[in-house]
Design a protein around this nucleic acid. Structure first.
Length: 127
DNA sequence: CTTCTTACA
DNA sequence: TGTAAGAA
């Protein structure tokens, strides 16, 4: 049960989540307004998503493609207890794929002189 | 440059 | 949902 800690650790920026989920910032913010997700906020008021948030967003995306409206989605994962049973096989995104995106982000960050937040958080995965 | 909020097409 | 504005 120490995994839940890591899974709810805030470390993804809006940009990364957009790439990870394929959703637009507009959609992500809208879902938050509707209490479908509750990302943390950084000092500069920037949203910081956890692995759980991303996973949740992917579920929302699936439901949306199935034609479920926000009310329905909220009903399906309304206040979904974070400690729910979820088969490893059913994970929406593989760790390998996640690493792939994370790494590309790290590389891009390297092209610039400073990328305080992102680079610092991502380093956890390559340590 | 990235992300935030608000407001309108 | 997309996008324009202005701020941070």
């Amino acid at each position: 049960m120490a995994d839940s800690v890591r899974r709810s650790m805030p470390l993804f920026s809006m940009g990364i989540v957009q790439k990870l989920t394929g959703l637009t910032a507009r959609q992500i913010r809208y879902y938050e307004e509707n209490d479908l997700i509750h990302p943390e906020r950084s000092e500069g008021n920037r949203r910081v998503f956890s692995f759980n948030d991303v996973d949740r967003l992917l579920d929302i995306k699936s439901l949306l493609d199935e034609g479920v409206n926000l009310a329905g989605i909220r009903r399906v994962l309304s206040e979904k207890p974070l400690e729910a049973n979820r088969p490893v096989e059913k994970k929406a995104i593989s760790d390998a794929e996640l690493m792939k995106y994370l790494k590309s982000e790290l590389v891009q960050a390297g092209k610039f002189g400073k990328t305080s937040l992102i680079q610092g958080e991502l380093s956890r995965f390559f340590r």
